[in-house]
Amino acid sequence: MLDASLPDPGLPARPGVGYKAQHFNALLSDPGPAAWLEVHAENYMGDGGRPLAQLRHLAERFPLSVHGVGLSIGGEGPLDPDHLARLRHLVGWLNPASFSEHLAWSTHDSHFLNDLLPLPYTQSTLSRVATHIDQLQEAIGRQMLLENPSSYLAFDESELTETEFLREVVARTGCGLLLDVNNVFVSATNLKTSPRAYIDAFPLEAVGEIHLGGHDEDKDDHGETLLIDSHGREVVDPVWALLDYTLAKSGPKPILIEWDNDVPDWPILAAEADRAQAALALIPS
């Protein structure tokens, strides 16, 4: 367990955006409301070239959040030691303001499935996830933030709620949490639970970063609404409202706009970051 009772205070409690190469020039000339950037760790594990050159420039200008998408913290098998070493190298090189990963698995039997796959919330999952987080925090020499997933289904075997599970992971490992408010809304809609009750039960004191993103809407076999976390459009109004509800309880937090598919021109992404700035300004003191 890491000796850290509070999340790493590295990221400013202001809006940030997920970095896309097509926004490089816009960000360097006028980042507008974007006070920090998040990059996906795995995109910067090549040996050199433009990706690392750009990141070197950005790191001089912005606080960075490194967001891993490939470690498979929830995997049944052991963590990939090569990948741990790559993460250690990247974090050592960049010294980012924050490092985060997901409550999910993506690798099985050395097959990487390139998706964030779901976990049952059981005691055995809990001890496995806690062990893996201990190993990761040991490898990178700092606290990580663990992100809540988008859920499309439930496991019959689950014994804990997601918030009970996350609270226990924090208690066992000393990690912080990355609260994805869109994921909360998606999961609550899909599984017919209350998003506000989820926020009420969430250990907000451990939150070091908030994520917002767009989702798509579909129907399940019974005609029930099925929301899909797609990061391909604007954040919807009910998610902004849930953000307001969250911030009123949590106080100011760093807020990331994620837009990974059908990436828009910079002004559209900047407008989303502006809206996050407005939400931060609304927090009752």
Partner: peptide, 24 residues
């Protein structure tokens, strides 16, 4: 062992992951 949260089999909800993996 996977359901829609209301006790019915996950069905199409599992296909979200199937689709995500192949599309990604």
């Amino acid at each position: 062992g996977l359901s829609d949260g209301a006790g019915r089999p996950a069905g199409k909800r599992y296909d979200v992951y199937r689709n995500n993996v192949v599309v990604a």
